[in-house]
Amino acid sequence: MDSAVVRKDVIAAAVLVAFGAAVVAVGLKIPLGVATDPLGPRTFPVALGAGIAICGVLLVAGMLLFRSAPAGPGLLGDMDPEDEAAADAGPFSLTRLVGPPLVTLVLYLTFKYGLRIPVPEGILAPLLSR
């Protein structure tokens, strides 16, 4: 891996861990809030601060674990051969067209008929009421 990239990522990780720790430290001074509010005003900022510090650690960990692999494909191409083959299948490949609607349908049926939880039908209401 390019040493300049490694150095940038290490610096970024250090800054992020420090920033995250600072957010947690300041966040812990926020009052807890009322008993009826399960999270209160403190929890979300503290969780985010901890999250960003953890992400800083993950940044370095990912760099060490995946140093032999190139970076993932970017926005504008650089696809690996398998992905190129998948892309060559076009937007109308079976997986891309059928997958998400199939998952949605399975979940809809599971909730409506399996778990018996009311499901809002929205735009399908006129069709389903016939």
């Binding site: 957010v23 300041v26 966040g27 926020i30 009052p31 809030g33 009322v34 509010d37 209160g40 005003p41 979300f44 900022p45 985010l48 601060g49 999250g51 960003i52 992400c55």
Partner: peptide
């Protein structure tokens, strides 16, 4: 997450507590 953290600054909408 950084964007979310910046968005928490200000007055908490539920309790009115100032944050950051």
């Amino acid at each position: 997450v950084l964007g979310l953290i910046i968005a928490t600054a200000g007055t908490d909408p539920f309790s009115g507590t100032p944050r950051f």
